[in-house]
Design a binder for these strands. Structure first.
Lengths: 215, 215
DNA sequence: GAAGGATTTGTACGTGCGACCAAAAAATAC
DNA sequence: GTATTTTTTGGTCGCACGTACAAATCCTTC
């Protein structure tokens, strides 16, 4: 409908077109704010075809989420492969995570931002789908702890939430024409979380005491 | 409808009931995922009454956002009043910010999380409404910089985004019956952003160099 | 306690929703 | 080149949406 027949080699697999169109609309307007008719139109397909491929709207977002996990997982794994230093692997992994979040692969931010307000049953399915991704980060963290690179007394799960919260929120303000690239932002965040922001003179004598004082 | 007439002192101002009900539903299901009828029912009112108070759905969320700003601003201002130390004022302010975000005042998370996918015109109105809140944090940051409490070479606006991103994301996983109170979480986050997470042995010799290396 | 404005009621309107499906068309297998 | 399966079409179902509004009710004021 939108394009001419084009050449014989045209990628005309509509499954991919539908998923991409849906992910883009979900990213922009949210799951609840996007109609399947709008998805169909954006994909250049009639509503009936969409229903044929994905029986319900929920099936659609689940497929998007599964794709997002596949994509982000592959990106992170190939990004961390070059290094064996745990801390460096985390830095590289966070670069890849942020690149995936800000990329044209709209599925990733959809999984990150729309998860928490989906129906309970759908949310459970998506958290399940995300498990392999959570697992790889779990492993990266334990490796850094084991190597003694992180300060003693840290609540690691809290640090993880802190870091992912900050990093994911970049998607809410990032603009491609801004002054910093995704990798630059990721590195800046890595440095902040690693070293903190206080000037040397304002720091306490003992790091361990400061962390333990949090109770 | 939901309650008996009760005493003569009953707060029966429906404006407040409607705003509270709407904020709660928007928080749970998002703006697009909440119908005006659902708001009316939750407020114990028929749809017509709601239209009488708020001509459109957009007027409703703008009213919620304005209330959120009033509330959070007052909370932060009274929280920072006891101290004159810039760093301490930021810590206290962040406590108040997180308390407001996690409180029963659903308007605050609505403003934080629903803003970015509203129609352009509405978003502009809400950002305008939020301006006083942004201004107070601007002031707190400049005070800490002026006092030399933050490391030289920091990109302050990036640090602000980092910190608010992390803190706001607490609303996505916090549960009241969890092990940490909002104030404990806020303090833990303040310590993380202040000191970083590396063990002493893993830190570079010069902080300034590390920050400047980010380009 | 009557008048008159403020508020709520109950319902209606046109639109768009998610889902559905018989029939047509295209692709594939034989 | 026919038979079979896969996919798309184009339209319909009943429902819920945001909004509007006349009639009924409540509340205040004098």
């Amino acid at each position: 409908m939108s394009t001419a027949k084009a050449s014989a080699t045209t990628v005309h697999v509509p499954q991919g077109r539908i998923l991409r169109a849906a992910a883009q609309l979900f990213r922009e307007r949210g799951f609840g704010g996007t109609s399947i008719r709008a998805v169909a139109q954006a994909a250049g397909v009639l509503p009936g075809s969409l229903t044929y491929r994905f029986r319900t709207k929920e099936d659609l977002i689940v497929a998007i989420a599964e794709h997002a996990v596949d994509y982000a997982l592959a990106e992170v794994q190939s990004a961390i492969a070059p290094s064996r230093d745990p801390l460096e692997r985390i830095r590289l992994g966070m670069r890849a995570h942020l690149r995936a979040l800000l990329s044209e692969e709209d599925a990733v931010p959809v999984l990150v931002f729309d998860l928490h307000r989906l129906p309970e049953q759908t949310r459970t399915r998506l958290i399940e789908a995300r498990r392999p991704y959570d697992a790889i980060w779990e492993g990266l963290c334990y490796a850094a702890i084991g190597a003694g690179q992180l300060a003693a007394g840290l609540d690691v799960s809290l640090v993880k939430r802190f870091w992912f919260g900050a990093t994911n929120s970049v998607a809410l303000w990032y603009r491609p024409d801004g002054p910093l690239s995704p990798d630059q932002i990721a590195d800046a965040f890595s440095t902040l979380i690693a070293l903190g922001t206080l000037s040397p003179g304002a720091r306490p004598d003992s790091l361990e005491q400061a962390f333990k004082a949090l109770g």
